[in-house]
Amino acid sequence: MTLEIDTGSGLMPVHVWEGSGPGLLLLQEIFGVSEYIQERGAQLAALGYHVVAPEIFWRLDDVDLDPDATDLLDRALAVLDRLDWDLAVSDSIAALEYLRGRDTPVGVIGYCFGGGLGFNVAAAADPDVLVSYYGSALPNLLPLAPDVTAASLHHFGDADDYLPRATVDKIVAELGDAEVHRYPGAGHAFDNPMPAFHHAEASAQAWQRTTEFLSRQLPPEGNE
């Protein structure tokens, strides 16, 4: 279902998958809350989590992210160029506070753009857990690393053109005791099912590790 959350400066649309356990803030890729992100939301809810995925681009006009467009990536990058990062962080925190209103532990899981955004949210709002898939903004966010106290899991592909190995090495060096996994042969957005991105083995391994991590650090059965 969808609803609207008061951000203090407007009503932000969010997608909700209801569960009786802890809350999970699901942060989108640059392609928006796509069918892929919605599928992940439903899968997380099936594990027992109450999942909220905000429409981070809601403040922008003329956003057209037609998944069948041949220039989808260019369109998405153009949208990202118009985004106010600080507002995206505060909007995400508003969604996290909405989840906290259920009086359960809360976590953040983000993909690509959302992986970096989630890291920033974790530094600013102290969720219980963070899962970040190849956070594209991480190289610019490393000064925030000491403020991320949540139990954290990070996934990176070793064939990522956006986050090359040397860059990931620098990121990992700043992540402290976070759990980190790197996937040989996997490029950026390897979990996305689009043929241009998908790496089936890495996707399956990362999802298994994600669900196992969540079951340890944010167990759904302990909060029903």
Rank of each mutant, 00 (worst) to 15 (best):
I5C: 04
G8N: 06
S9A: 12
S9F: 11
L11Y: 12
M12K: 15
H15L: 05
W17S: 10
W17Q: 07
P22Q: 04
L25P: 11
I30N: 07
F31M: 09
E35T: 09
Q43I: 00
A45E: 01
A45F: 02
A46D: 09
A46N: 08
L47R: 13
G48C: 06
V52P: 13
E55V: 15
L60Y: 13
D62I: 03
D64H: 12
D64Y: 04
P67A: 09
D68S: 15
R75V: 05
L77R: 07
L77V: 11
L77W: 01
A78F: 06
L80D: 09
D81L: 10
D81N: 12
R82I: 00
R82F: 02
L83D: 06
D84W: 09
W85R: 15
V89I: 14
S90L: 07
D91S: 00
I93W: 11
A95R: 07
L99E: 05
D103H: 15
T104P: 02
G107D: 03
I109H: 11
G110W: 06
Y111P: 00
L117T: 11
V121Y: 00
V121H: 05
A122C: 05
D128K: 13
S132E: 02
Y134Q: 03
G135Q: 02
S136Q: 04
L138N: 03
L138K: 02
P139Y: 03
N140Y: 11
N140I: 08
L141I: 09
P143H: 07
A151D: 13
A151H: 14
H155S: 00
D158E: 14
A159D: 11
A159P: 04
A159S: 13
D161C: 05
R165Y: 06
V168L: 05
I171A: 01
I171T: 05
E174V: 01
G176E: 04
A178W: 04
A178Q: 08
V180N: 03
P184G: 01
H188K: 00
D191E: 10
M194L: 15
M194D: 10
A202P: 01
Q205R: 14
A206C: 02
Q208S: 13
L214G: 01
L218M: 07
N223V: 07
